[in-house]
């Protein structure tokens, strides 16, 4: 690994010039996406705050309304813990949006407990501490950074033990909680632009495909999610049409039900 400090000086110098003087080489104005689609890499799942940021730009959101710090049920099944961990990380981003330091600290602690439950506590401990420290200092950018690092470290640790499926469930848990909050906000104050943020058909296909590859995870909540993704698909895969208020409300009902199944023992 090349030391970042060694290269930073000259790279910074080069880049300062690059941004001013080196436009991109001419690229084709159009490509055949049907050819490209056959060899695309896996998608990177957006963080909940990516969509929250876009939502914020449409108008004020009362994020405090969505802050959640209840500890919820304790699970021993790893897939359930992974889904819940993703959901709790998303709760962390919500608490950051609300600038609620005590909630962020509780969530940091909860993230650590859940990470230990799937055997990745060691990788997460420094991030959990950093989340709590940054919340104390109300340094929200650092909290966001550490929440992202937490999710990335879980994925890395899972990959190292060839357990990518659990990492995918963490991402899925976060996406579901983010979508639940997004649809709550848009249902209350409907706008076409807000509803458009739900236009994520490829992400849905991605999760669908990943769930199909984990038949060994047959907990009722996982089966519920599989069914629910098929219910959500026609509501958001509307090509050039707008996503309707009814569709947003229906997705909110579905994701709220799933959230209940993820956080409580049933």
């Amino acid at each position: 690994m090349i030391s970042v400090s060694k290269i930073s000086k000259w790279v910074g110098f080069i880049l300062a010039g690059a941004t001013l003087s080196a436009p991109a080489a001419p690229a084709p104005q159009h490509i055949d996406v049907h050819q490209i689609s056959k060899r695309v890499e896996d998608v990177v799942v957006p963080l909940p705050n990516e969509v929250f940021g876009a939502l914020n730009k449409l108008g004020p959101v009362n994020w405090k309304e969505f802050v959640r710090t209840e500890k919820g049920a304790n699970f021993t099944e790893r897939p359930r813990i992974a889904l819940l961990l993703g959901s709790v990380i998303a709760d962390g981003f919500i608490a950051v949006q609300a600038e609620d330091a005590p909630a962020v600290k509780d969530i940091g602690q909860r993230v650590l407990t859940l990470a230990k439950g799937i055997g990745v506590g060691n990788s997460i401990t420094p991030h959990a501490k950093a989340i709590i420290d940054a919340a104390d200092k109300r340094n929200w950018d650092n909290v966001r950074l550490e929440l992202d690092r937490t999710q990335s470290s879980v994925q890395q640790a899972m990959n190292e033990v060839q357990d990518q499926k659990l990492a995918q469930l963490v991402s899925l848990g976060g996406w579901l909680r983010g979508t639940q909050v997004l649809t709550s906000v848009v249902t209350k104050h409907f706008s076409t632009e807000g509803a458009e943020l739900l236009h994520q058909p490829d992400l849905l296909s991605y999760f669908d495909q990943k769930l199909a590859g984990m038949p060994e995870y047959n907990a009722p909540v996982v089966l519920s999610i599989k069914t629910a993704l098929n219910q959500v698909r026609p509501l958001i895969d509307v090509a050039t049409k707008s996503i309707s208020p009814d569709a947003v409300k229906r997705i909110n009902e579905i994701t709220t039900r799933l959230d209940g199944e993820i956080v409580t023992r049933q």
């Binding site: 890499e41 990516e50 876009a54 992202d148 943020l197 994520q200 992400l203």
Partner: peptide
């Protein structure tokens, strides 16, 4: 700009291309 921790990587020969697909949100 908030830089994501997650990234794509690999290796390519000269003249080779690779496509990655990413969900982007209007407003960002």
């Amino acid at each position: 700009f908030q830089v994501r921790e997650d990234y794509w990587g690999g290796d390519l020969g000269s003249g080779e291309k690779k496509a990655v697909r990413q969900q982007l949100f209007k407003g960002n």
